[in-house]
Structures are given as structure tokens and as C-alpha cells.
Computed example of a mutant assay.
Amino acid sequence: MKESKVSVLVGDGVVTVKREGSNRALQANILGTVEADGVQVLCLDRLVHASHEQQFGEWTLAGAVTTLLSRPLKLEAVALQ
């Protein structure tokens, strides 16, 4: 299966997902953020991924009703805590 290029932009309370070759962008509100064990998880208010998609760049995808985006925290950010 061809892997599509997707950009994820995290803003103030929202996430925007833009697929290469598409004019449309999906936007979802961030319901909450969890940071634990060196991982950041963003809980969105809707699905922004298809069932066959597992990764958007550095973001790992999960969820059947809403999307959960997770990625490792940057080493500098972990060291500051």
C-alpha cells in the first residue's frame, strides 16, 4: 500500500491535518493532552485518520471513534521536567 504524505500542525487547542495532493485540510479540537513516560498523547474530538493508517510522520495513530496522536517527547523537554 502506498504511504501518503501527511503534515500535522498542532496549534492552540487544535490540530490540522493536511494530505499531500489534496486541497482540503482536516481540523480537530484537542480535548486533552497527556504526557507520561516520555510520550505525549493528544486526544482529539474526531477521527482524522483512516482505519488503515498507523503513522503520520512522527505521530502514531490510534482510535476508533476519535484519533489519539502520540509521539515521543523531545529529549530537551523531558530533561527540563
Rank of each mutant, 00 (worst) to 15 (best):
L31Y: 03
L9F: 13
H52D: 07
G38R: 00
V41N: 04
G38N: 01
Q55M: 05
G11Y: 06
D45N: 15
K18V: 09
D45P: 10
A36R: 15
V78C: 05
R46N: 14
Q27S: 15
G57D: 08
G13Q: 05
V8W: 02
V6D: 01
L42K: 01
S70Y: 04
L47S: 05
W59K: 05
V15L: 02
V8K: 04
S70A: 10
A50P: 00
S51E: 15
V65A: 05
N29D: 08
L42M: 07
L75V: 10
S22N: 09
H52E: 14
E3R: 11
A25F: 01
L75E: 12
K18S: 15
T16H: 04
S4Y: 06
E53R: 06
L47A: 06
D37P: 00
R71W: 01
L42E: 02
K74G: 03
K74S: 09
A28Y: 06
T33E: 12
L9M: 11
L31R: 12
A50K: 15
K5W: 08
T33A: 06
P72Q: 03
K74W: 05
K74T: 00
S51N: 12
G63W: 07
K18L: 13
E3A: 13
G21I: 13
V65K: 08
R19H: 10
G32K: 11
V8A: 05
V8H: 03
P72I: 01
E20P: 02
V6H: 10
V65C: 04
A28T: 04
A25Y: 00
L47F: 06
G63D: 03
